[in-house]
Nucleic acid binder design. Structure first.
Length: 222
DNA sequence: GGTACGATTGTCT
DNA sequence: GACAATCGTACCT
């Protein structure tokens, strides 16, 4: 929460808070809340794991090869939602950070559902099997699914108090752990040059680490 | 117009 | 631990 603000931070303050360096913002988002208000219900997730993507200089970022239709929102002002489709089936959600013109964003990797368990469970059931509430938002595609984030919500303003998706930062987390980003290999195994995954140590609502598959490891089909 | 591949997940061994 | 599902995007000719 910006400077110990009691929780009624206005949109402008939140936007300014998010407009800082992505490596500063990302760990401070841990413990924060994301709430979606959609036709089928309201769900709130408390963030336990995120990753920073620094834009055009960052080989792991979707913005590395410049602006495109898909990543355009990342180049805009902070506080907007970047959603993309992955592997044909899944969605992943990011919070745009940094100054206008710089394509930085924070990938929301995992969280704990703290409101709207039934709604989140129903959404997950449409996709596959829900085992426990621990798993509802553990993993970026699961989190996006539980919150109902999809391409229709591309670019929405997370700082708008009356919008469908709202972000409310929490207290500065007491302890944050850092490590390489999941699934990001980088040229020549450079993944560890960018230890930009942040999570709350000991929290069960954190996804399991999976290294990026080695290049060419995927079986060829014909 | 063609193709390789992914900021993932679930299932099977 | 390994692999298929599944399709948009990026990059090539």
């Amino acid at each position: 929460r910006p400077d110990g603000d009691p929780g009624t931070a206005d949109a402008a303050a939140l936007r300014a808070w998010l407009a800082r360096d992505v490596l500063e913002v990302a760990p401070q988002l841990l413990g924060g809340l994301v709430t979606t208000t959609l036709p089928d219900g309201v769900v709130t997730v408390r963030l336990t794991e995120v990753e920073a993507y620094a834009g055009e200089d960052d080989p792991g970022s979707h913005a590395f090869r410049g602006r495109s239709l898909r990543n355009a929102v990342m180049f805009g002002p902070a506080g907007h939602l970047y959603v993309y489709r992955h592997m044909g089936l899944h969605h992943c959600a990011n919070v745009v950070t940094g100054t206008d013109g710089r394509a930085a964003a924070v990938l929301l990797r995992a969280g704990e559902v703290v409101e709207g368990h039934d709604v989140a469970r129903a959404r997950r059931l449409r996709r596959g099997v829900v085992r426990t509430d621990l798993d509802l938002a553990r993993g970026p595609a699961r989190l996006a699914d539980a919150l109902g984030l999809h391409l229709d919500l591309y670019g929405v303003d997370l700082t708008d108090p009356s919008g469908p998706v709202r972000l409310v930062p929490g207290e500065a987390p007491a302890d944050v752990r850092t490590g390489p980003r999941v699934g990001v290999g980088g040229e020549g195994g450079d993944a560890h040059r960018y230890p930009w995954r942040f999570w709350l140590p000991g929290d069960p609502h954190v996804s399991v680490y999976r290294a990026a598959p080695a290049p060419g490891s995927r079986a060829r089909r014909r």
